[in-house]
Amino acid sequence: MFIVGLDYARPGQSVFGNVRFLLDILCVVKNQGLHMRIVSLVVFLSLAFLGRSQSGEIPILNFTALNETLNLESDTTYVLNFWATWCKPCVEELPFFEEADIAYKDRAVRILLVSLDFATQVHEKLVPFLKNHTINAHVVVLDDPDANTWIDLVHPDWTGALPATILYRQKDRQFKEGSFDSTADLFAYIDSFHLKN
């Protein structure tokens, strides 16, 4: 269910964008049983047809749902940035992630912005913020109160301070607490992870 939400989160993205993203997911499940294939097909089709009408909706997830995205076993590098609209250093580095989202479009790198904005303020604060800052990268809201139970599951080095960024591909993880200085800084960080064997 989460994956469906993930794709709805990108406003202004074409159906083809959604389809392309889903193909990644389908690659993950192609080795699974028939049951999973059918489930994937249903998700795929509903997205292709319904995705557009839902765009602009930002999924609100608990950690169990987000954790699925932290454990996808594809060859894609996933970049998850934990941020909030009220976090100044987060907002300062957000354009770098937006640029990465565009720059890495044709590579096996996916950006996901995990907002810790309050779930009650999604419509009044988060949505207008994304519009004003022209952020089109995928956004989800993580709303799970007992952070002590899940911060270590994101990465043991994370103290809980925002911003924080985790890169992962299969079991390999790289974590940074604190912000990036520039687009070049972020790109170098992604490349150092994505391009290694």
Partner: peptide, 13 residues
Amino acid sequence: EPTKTKAIGCGIK
């Protein structure tokens, strides 16, 4: 018990 917990917060500037 516990002696240490984590929480979301704003990074110290």
